[in-house]
């Protein structure tokens, strides 16, 4: 499994657990509009869980640029390989 796939798989696990949807399919193109329960109340909680999982901390401008799950995964990959 490539690092990109591994990141997406771990992010999917967090989304499933946090949103209590065990069968949720998360793709790089997934946005908040595509997932029930992913709203402004859960958005930052999801980001925080991702930060804990990958032991990193995003900066606010970075978070602002996340338009979908793929953007977040790219930012994680950049940090992990950086």
């Amino acid at each position: 499994m490539s690092q990109t796939d591994d990141i997406l798989s771990r992010v999917t696990g967090i989304f499933r657990e946090e949103l209590k949807q065990p069968n949720l399919v998360v793709l790089p193109s997934t946005t908040a509009n595509d997932v029930e329960g992913w709203d402004s109340l859960t958005h930052m909680a999801l980001i925080h869980m991702v930060e804990l999982e990958f032991k990193l901390k995003f900066k606010l401008p970075e978070i602002l640029k996340f338009k979908n799950v793929g953007d977040m995964c790219q930012a994680i990959e950049k940090r992990l390989s950086g």
Binding site: S40, A45, I47
Partner: peptide, 18 residues
């Protein structure tokens, strides 16, 4: 306002967003 504040409070999960 909301986005930076919720980012700042994100460690408190939903309570932070509220």
């Amino acid at each position: 306002v909301y986005f930076p504040l919720s980012a700042m409070f994100r460690r408190w999960s939903r309570a932070g967003a509220i």
